[in-house]
Every structure is written in C-alpha cells, then in structure tokens.
Design a protein around this nucleic acid. Structure first.
Lengths: 154, 154
DNA sequence: GCATGATTGTATGACGTCGTACAGTATGTG
DNA sequence: CACATACTGTACGACGTCATACAATCATGC
C-alpha cells in the first residue's frame, strides 16, 4: 500500500489531490485501452460506438458534446469507424447540414463486446470500494467540476 | 446543480464515475492552464519548474517519473524552459550520462509566481468541500489506482 | 422574400505526448 | 580485465486532440 509507485504521496506539495486525480484519469484511459485492444479500438472509439448503439442515430456535434471532445476530432473518429464499416453516415431528412451517425450490424455486435469488456473492467475497479464511497466520490467530483467551471470563467 | 453541462449525469451508462473523473481531470488541466497563461506557461512546464525550485537539481528521468510523463517528452519540456533561461542543464560530476536540471534566478522568481497561482486556485477548488471529503476522495483515488494497476497488468 | 446571424461538418496547421530505437555511459559478473 | 546487462537522454515518426477558418445550410427578423 505504501509502495504505489509513489509519485502521488510525495508529489510536489502544490498539486496534491489534483495530481492524483489526473494520474488516475490517465490510468483509466490506459486500462480501458488495454482491454479494448483485442477489439482494435481505443476508448474514444468504443465510447462513440457504445453511445450510438445505445441511443441510436446521432449528430456529430451531439456526440462531441456527449463524449467531451471537439467536433473536429469527432469527425476523424467517425471517419475511422466508417472506414471499418462499424458506423454509417445517413443524411438527415430535415437538416441537410448534418449527418446522422448510425451503427451498422457489425458495429452492433462489436458494441456488445465493448459492453462486456466494460462491465468486467468496472467490476474489477470496484474491488475494495464500497457503494457509499463511490457515491461520495461522484459527489465530490461533480462539486469539484462546479468549482473548476467557475474558476475557468474568471 | 442539475444543469452542469450534463454530459456526466446522462453519460453513456457504461463509464459513469470513470467518465466524470476523466472530464474532471480535463477541467483541472484547463483551469491551471488558464491561470498560468499570464506567466506563459502550461501546467506541465509549471510543474517542472515548481518541482525543481522546491527540490533542487534533478535528473530528467526523475522528473519524468515525478510528473508522470515520458522521458522523451520531458526532454522537450526542458528544452523549452532552457531556451527561456528558466532552467539550466548542468553535467553531473558522478554520472556523465545525466543532466542535472537546475532552476535559474529568473526561473526561481517565476516559480514563486506559480506557487501563488497554485495556492489561489486550489483554495477556490476547495469551496464547499470539507477536509474529510477531500481525504476520502484521496483515499478512494489511490485505491482506484491500485485496482487500475492490477487491471493493466493482466 | 431576403438579409443577418447562428450552427454543422470539414480542412488545415499546431501542439503535446507517446513508443521505439539508438548511442553513450554506468554497473555488475565472470 | 572483459563482458553482458541496465540505464540516461535524444531523435524520429506517429497519434490524438485542439483552434481556427471556411463553405454550406438553417433560423429569425423585417
């Protein structure tokens, strides 16, 4: 326990919880990427696929907002998945500017694989962490986000 | 409260706390970058400068470990700071492979500015979050990191 | 109907980070 | 001493993301 790989306990005195949080986020991405590697997907691609499989045809801007990345970046992600026939771009009958991104059959089966990977990994991540602790974590995080937002807009 | 900018409460059902955590990490970087912008530094550069100012001449590998980035990337960061005369590379008398990175006088005064920015921002981030909550957060995060590490090494 | 402004997706260039490979150097073993 | 192994910093290419600018399209006002 005392021998994490340090770098969080004796981290620079400024940046304490914050740096732990950021390195944790990095590890999360790393862990998901590792588990998704057999599917030849990274976390961003998998998120997109899972989201579309769950909620149906979606606009790219909407996807960008949901997955927390820019519209431009989202475009290239969609390009990649489209080239692999996992998603399709359909024109929107009501708005000729937008594409509605929908998942193909191949994408849908892959999405269920993703869901399985996700479920397994998240179960592992819960080891030794109680439900109340997770809820407390979630609460503090959202509260932190509020503070961060107002700090950024200042 | 219910109108964050969503994207965490109605996030894809898979990835819940995890995605909140990652977006929080992004916001942290964003907030620090914004506050450090007047100093013409980003969070990575500021971290490096603050660390060296605090702990004295340091090896690049050591810095990479501490700041959680690769050695190669650390090299370019040092390059940039060296070009602005904020740090210096001194040869190590005992090991001719390594550079000991030390802070210049200019870098030291800038480091105190960084410390001030850091102190102010972190005080803002604590609003509405009690000490026990912060400690609980820290505990859950390190526990999560343990789980993540063993998940990655599998 | 038509101008004005807002929004969508894309192209482009830039940045930060990563992974790998490499030469130089140190450390340990015979 | 010679040799193998480990480690440090760097060069290089690749990737993912971002910011900006842009054309196409929609929405709103008159």
């Amino acid at each position: 326990m005392s021998s994490l790989t340090n770098n969080e306990l004796d981290a620079p005195p400024w940046l304490r919880v914050e740096s732990t949080l950021m390195s944790t986020a990095r590890l999360i991405r790393e862990a998901f990427d590792a588990r998704l590697k057999p599917l030849d997907l990274n976390l961003t691609q998998a998120s997109l696929l899972a989201y579309v499989a769950e909620f149906g045809a979606t606009t790219q801007t909407q996807l960008a907002d949901q997955l927390g990345t820019g519209r431009a970046a989202m475009g290239t992600v969609v390009d990649g998945l489209e080239k692999r026939d996992l998603v399709e771009r359909h024109p929107d009958p009501d708005d000729r500017r937008v594409w509605r991104i929908d998942v193909t059959d191949a994408g849908r089966t892959l999405a269920s694989d993703i869901a399985r990977v996700d479920e397994v990994l998240r179960a592992e991540l819960r080891h030794g962490i109680g439900r109340e602790e997770r809820q407390a974590l979630s609460w503090v995080l959202t509260r932190l986000q509020v503070n961060l937002q107002s700090a950024i807009n200042t």
